[in-house]
């Protein structure tokens, strides 16, 4: 028996496909997983005035903001990816994104970027911005974070076979469909092109990043929405990047970092497998789960 459930969240469509014995129960589990994603959207949306992220951005420049365990863990994960990716992933790009016109609203008077200006105090579990104008944007990791929590909810409900995805760019697989090694997913390197890389996903998460997802025309130049926080420009060194990891949030954050870098940095997590589409149009797959990828 297969059940489907879908909800809009985080500016895209999340979908759950579940396999099992009782359809009603599968549907209920799918709904709960998607409700978890909705809850995370309410907490981490940059554009909702009532979100936790809006509160952090509004107040952390003046005072230390107390966080719950989940929220603090997420920001610590951001800090770790930022450090290990040598700054290629940076969740403080919000003011810069607005300044470049990717986010709505007037450009801010200044657009500082720097995770080094985000102080996370594990003892008091608080966050504080050390520089004026700093703001967080978790757009490059939020979907993965929500998918991790949703998948945990499904596992807790006893679901053994499911695929959850957000906007087809981030997915998490639980088990595999009957008779298969994993959930077979095609990865498209170019907009509109047929997939030439496939992955059999099982108890892993996948995230794919590419600059063509959202673009902006500025001074006659088409700019991709992925910024290199170090140069402060929308520039990347690969045509697409995919990351497979046991953690959806790590896969999400690292796919962005790998797109910016164009190669695996030395401190890439050992359990993370990457696939990078270079400028010549060749997929380069590295990491412990290389065997689950198939290039055509």
């Amino acid at each position: 028996m297969i059940a489907l459930a879908a909800r809009p969240a985080m500016g895209t469509r999340f979908e759950a496909v579940l396999a099992g014995e009782e359809e009603g129960r599968l549907r209920a589990a799918g709904e709960e997983a998607l409700e978890t994603i909705e809850e995370e959207d309410l907490r981490w949306s940059l554009f909702r005035r009532g979100s936790l992220l809006t509160l952090i951005n509004a107040r952390a420049g003046d005072v230390s903001v107390r966080l719950d365990e989940e929220a603090f863990d997420l920001l610590e994960t951001c800090r770790a990816i930022h450090r290990d990716s040598e700054g290629a992933f940076d969740p403080t790009v919000a003011p810069l994104m607005r300044s470049l016109g990717f986010h709505p609203g007037p450009p801010p008077p200044m657009a500082p970027v720097g995770m080094d200006a985000v102080d996370l105090d594990a003892g008091s579990r608080t966050v504080r911005f050390l520089r004026r104008g700093i703001a967080l944007d978790l757009g490059a990791i939020g979907k993965g974070h929500a998918l991790d929590l949703a998948a945990a909810r499904l596992r807790e409900a006893g679901i053994r076979c499911a695929l959850l995805h957000g906007g087809t760019s981030s997915a998490v697989a639980i088990g595999a469909p009957p008779g298969r090694e994993g959930w077979r997913i095609g990865i498209r390197g170019e907009e509109g092109a047929e997939p030439r890389l496939f992955v059999e996903l099982r108890d892993r998460a996948l995230s794919v990043s590419a600059p063509h997802g959202r673009t902006l025309l500025r001074d006659g130049e088409r700019l991709g929405h992925v910024l290199d926080p170090r140069s402060r420009r929308p520039e990347v060194r690969a045509r697409a990047a995919a990351a497979v990891s046991p953690s959806a949030r790590l896969a999400d954050g690292w796919s962005t970092a790998l797109l910016v870098l164009g190669e695996r940095p030395p401190r890439t997590p050992d359990d993370l497998t990457s696939a990078i589409l270079d400028e010549a149009g060749t997929w380069r797959v590295e990491g412990p789960d290389r065997r689950i990828f198939e290039a055509r």
Binding site: G24, R27, A28, A29, G158
Partner: peptide, 9 residues
């Protein structure tokens, strides 16, 4: 549109 159901293991 929702089942109103809750699941547990």
């Amino acid at each position: 549109k929702t089942t109103w159901r809750v699941t547990a293991s």
